[in-house]
């Protein structure tokens, strides 16, 4: 045995304290995840209703043949805006790096993309590469709230209307379950090309003739910003749930690994102790033999 018993004991103690930390982090992530999962569910009724109403109003605007608001107009340009959602903190397995990798690929394809960054991890990464951002948001905390989404939505809305870019895509991590999440692109603007997932099929008859108060255009001017905010908020919440799920899994693996390491070290500690005892016995027996002869 190369190591002395005392040395092994010290290593075990150090790994045990690390394990305590990873276990605590796992439990914290699990508790927060439960809350965030509820938030994911809570956004759905609002979002679905909004999607249906938006489809109705868009169809009505098309039928009316009037000049539609700028925000609703379809654009053919290829100037992109990418909204990248990452976490502020690491220790979440491959969560952040997966998002950043997808963003890099997107940038390779469309080098002139304007970026809106959420989360310190993406910001630090792209800063090192001397990328500039349209806007950056860090320290959003563990409970995404609609006001944060409204801030981001406002920026996107203004720049889109001022013709700074033609399409807006959110890059986020979809939460499927605690261990499975998928990095996804979700196109929001132009509104006519929004991600099909953002345009749930209406359960009501699409032919229902609505009265628009004061007018279709004015209704759209209210509904579209609400829709952009909601799409961002939904993505923020899903991304947060994925982050917490990833952290929980990463920390559980770390705790398990620490446990295995401790088991192995205990084994070698016992072996070392046994070796010492055997040696002592051999010495005593050897001494006794010497006396007898």
């Amino acid at each position: 045995m190369a190591q002395s018993g005392r040395e092994i004991k010290r290593r075990i103690a150090s790994i045990e304290s690390t394990q305590q930390i990873t276990k605590a982090m796992e439990m914290i992530a699990a508790a927060k995840l439960r809350r965030t999962q509820e938030a994911v569910l809570a956004t759905r009724p609002y979002f679905e209703r909004l999607g249906t109403s938006l489809s109705h109003a868009l169809a009505a605007a098309e039928r009316s043949g009037e000049d539609i608001p700028e925000i609703v107009k379809t654009r053919t340009g290829q100037r992109h805006c990418l909204v990248v959602l990452t976490a502020d903190r690491g220790l979440a397995g491959g969560y952040n790096s997966a998002v950043i990798r997808h963003a890099e690929e997107f940038l390779k394809e469309y080098p002139d993309t304007q970026m809106v960054i959420v989360g310190r991890k993406a910001r630090d990464h792209f800063r090192r590469r001397n990328q500039t951002f349209l806007a950056e948001y860090v320290n959003l905390g563990d409970d995404p709230n609609p006001r944060q989404a409204q801030d981001i939505g406002q920026v996107i809305y203004d720049f889109y209307v001022h013709d700074l870019f033609d399409r807006v895509t959110i890059l986020y991590t979809k939460f499927i379950n605690t261990v499975t999440h998928r990095v996804e692109f979700r196109q929001v603007l132009p509104i006519a090309e929004r991600d099909p997932e953002l345009a749930p099929q209406g359960r009501t008859s699409p032919q229902a003739l609505y009265l628009y108060e004061p007018s279709v255009n004015e209704v759209l001017e209210v509904v579209v910003p609400l829709f952009i905010d909601a799409a961002i908020f939904q993505s923020l919440v899903e991304a947060k749930a994925s982050e917490l799920g990833a952290r929980m899994t990463a920390m559980r693996n770390a705790s398990d690994n620490a446990g295995e390491l401790i088991k192995e070290l205990n084994l070698s500690f016992n072996r070392a102790r046994q070796a010492v005892i055997t040696k002592e016995i051999a010495e005593i027996v050897g001494g006794a033999d010497a006396l007898e002869s």
Binding site: S53, A57, L209, Y212, P214, V222
Partner: peptide, 20 residues
């Protein structure tokens, strides 16, 4: 609170979408 002022809704109103 509609954009052009307050308005009321009672049962069996025709389908309406209003900005508030």
């Amino acid at each position: 609170p509609g954009l052009d002022g307050k308005f009321g809704i009672l049962a069996d109103h025709v389908p309406i979408m209003a900005a508030l």
